[in-house]
Amino acid sequence: MSRLVALLLGATLGCSSVDQSSVTIATPDRAQFPLVADAISPSCATLDCHGQVGRNFRMYWQRGLRLDPAARPGEGETTTEEYDLTFRSLVALEPFKMDAVVKGTQKPDSLTLVRKARGTEAHKGGAMNPIGSDADRCLVSWLSGAIDTAACNAAAGKPAP
């Protein structure tokens, strides 16, 4: 587990003595996330899928939705801020399950994200990253704390080093 992320829940709720304004969860390694994002974006982050502002899992990408109002799909590179926001969106989908997966108490496929991408759970886009595909191995290995860089690069269409 590389880092903890605090999820803000807005104003303090109720009269409990417990601080409920934020929750801290374990997350996978943010530093390696660009490898994962580049691997899954071609199948997930197009403008007609998760590259839309209305998605719970909202993805920013060089060829899709851009963060900077002046940026255009297809221009420049995916920015650090865009990776940041996609990362936050991903880890906050099911924060407590994410925490458990990163701590190793639940398997990666307990996450809806993984099951939908594999097509083992109902998904409008179908099985975009089938079990064992490069993108699937990239995502699951990152969630498990030992990223498979070769799988990520292969899924992203990058040449092997």
Partner: peptide
């Protein structure tokens, strides 16, 4: 087209 059309 670089990207695939996934649903639209």
């Amino acid at each position: 087209m670089e990207s695939k059309v996934h649903r639209e």
